[in-house]
Design a protein around this nucleic acid. Structure first.
Lengths: 341, 341
DNA sequence: TTGAAAGCGCTAACAA
DNA sequence: TTGTTAGCGCTTTCAA
């Protein structure tokens, strides 16, 4: 038999029923389907509940129905500021619909991400995976278990939300082209990142349109350290006679690490090399020179993801097929400018 | 009656029981108390479970026992990098004990924090509140509902974990004193922050010992913007003839905002004013001049918090009384130096 | 509109 | 060591 609950026993539906002079199922009904119970009885029940301080036990409710009112948001790395606005948007949207959001951190590891996911799957009603490091196949599998939407990833079979990398790249290339650059070096992020592939191929596409040449180095970890590594690689290449005049980094963190290391090595940014990032994280404004970068409405992405997810949880047909794309725009600050000649 | 589960019905304990030729309770026992079941039966059950792909339903388990294997970590602001290492330490420690961690963000709002808390309380076995903005009274109340430990806060009735602000302040004051400063201005953080009070009073205590004078301005929001505001206030004060030569900020974010604004206003850091922060967030290394700051083993704090919490969940007597204090040390970088005269 | 009753999947007394 | 049984708190069909 069940062991006793802690000191202060919870007040149950039965207590309310007794107090209101009805039977338990009526109380349940009064909350779930207010229309199907006499108005005055309903009122009596509500009063009794309030009087006793009744709070439904979500666990007990979840057992027969499967409805836990919890969704999970998995991100690839809590320390990446890229996610903070997404988290907030998602949390706000979830709370608005009386859903609790569990946040799980994958720490840039596919294994950890998968483990965190496994642990949360049985208790959530739906999943949002932001910048997942898992494979498409794995993602498709888990999408079969629970309603799910992915962010920064496009998978035909599951509702996807991505930023407009193509437009972002076009703006970058356009800007650089106008400023006299004729070649752009892309500093790649993690191979497991869908966005990395998307950004690189977007850059190549638009560069071709504008008759710019491209180069790619990487992959590098998507953090300051990665930028540092990239800068070292770049300075070596430079000595071999291939100094890039413009680089586009996978994300702002890499761009920041890059800039700092380049400057420490005696180069001028943007004088010697223009550096542009992706994401517009807060720190972009902080470094010197301030970072020119491609921004997206992250908070909204979080909100939209939750709205879409809740819709399918509530029975809507998941909108698979093409990903929903949110617009991007280039924030021009100081780290990019005219090409040296 | 319960409605049908999704397409693929879960495999239950009953399926395993049938397959293994035993009764359900035996299966349950085989997992919960392996010692209390015949070795070969246990083996047979394990095989059957594996064969059928049985996974216990945590919700169902939780209903009779109250054991959800979930703990909650509430932080005052996801965007504050101060928490990232705490989060990781906590998550790692939780996963190690097969617990899932729910992260809830309070967004620097007592209301939001409390709401997030309310939502998670019924489904978790324990709570960790990091830098809570709630009142001591409210905290004591919720501590009665579930096992709980607080971080960056000291409450006699609940297990508390704090950094050694006194030692940190002493190192700061000592450093500044050695470099010829005779007065320190403290730039305060949020009033709801316990650490703010602790840091300010620590500073006053040690300053008195060393015959330094102190001033305090604030409160300011604990972010870059707050630092900017503080700098504006400071520059005004300066014109009134009270230019501080040394300031200690509530946290690194304020310190960073401060430095940037001071420099933008034409002052030299540390030439005109030395600035020191608290926490040693990652960005401290990024700005110019690199920030001198008081560091603490944050990741460990997260781990210790979880260990302590799990201990009391498992029945240990909560160690109330004095807070457990983790050591701090001053990381000397470039933002502080000799006093101007 | 309400009540009776069965059941969600699991646990834990109690007997055997 | 194993089986029997009741029950965690809620939902939902079925009757009344």
């Amino acid at each position: 038999m069940a062991q006793k609950r802690d000191d202060t026993r919870r007040v149950t539906i039965y207590d309310v029923a007794r107090e209101a002079g009805v039977v338990a199922s009526t109380v349940s009904r009064a909350f779930a389907r207010p229309g199907r119970v006499n108005a005055v009885t309903a009122q009596r029940i509500r009063l009794a509940a309030q009087h006793l301080g009744y709070r439904a036990n979500p666990l007990a409710r979840a057992l027969p129905t499967g409805k836990t009112s919890i969704i999970a948001l998995t991100i690839s790395d809590v320390s990446n500021p890229f996610f903070t606005e997404i988290i907030r948007g998602a949390q706000a949207a979830a709370a608005e619909s009386d859903f609790t959001m569990m946040l799980a951190d994958g720490q840039e590891s596919e294994l950890l991400e998968r483990e965190a996911l496994e642990r949360s799957i049985p208790i959530v009603e739906g999943l949002i995976l932001a910048s997942s490091r898992m494979s498409d196949a794995a993602l498709k599998m888990t999408a079969k278990q629970k309603p799910m939407v992915v962010l920064n990833r496009s998978i035909p079979e599951v509702p996807s939300l991505v930023t407009d990398n193509l437009s972002g790249a076009r703006q970058v290339a356009g800007y650089l082209h106008r400023h006299g650059h004729r070649s752009i070096t892309y500093v790649a992020g993690p191979e497991a990142s869908w966005a990395d592939g998307a950004r690189w191929s977007a850059l190549r596409t638009v560069a071709a349109e504008m008759h710019l040449t491209t180069k790619r180095i990487g992959p590098f970890p998507p953090n300051i350290k990665g930028g540092q590594l990239a800068a070292e690689k770049l300075t070596v290449e430079k000595h071999r006679g291939h100094p890039p005049t413009a680089v586009l980094a996978y994300n702002d963190q890499i761009a920041i690490g890059l800039i700092r290391t380049l400057i420490a090595a005696g180069l001028d940014v943007p004088g010697d090399v223009s550096v542009i990032g992706f994401d517009d994280i807060f720190a972009s404004r902080l470094i010197t020179p301030a970072l020119t970068t491609v921004a997206a409405p992250l908070r909204q992405m979080g909100e939209i993801a939750v709205h879409n997810l809740l819709a399918v949880i509530k029975g809507a047909q998941p909108k698979a097929g093409k990903a929903f794309v949110v617009p991007t725009h280039l924030v021009e600050r100081e780290s990019a400018g005219p090409a040296r000649h």
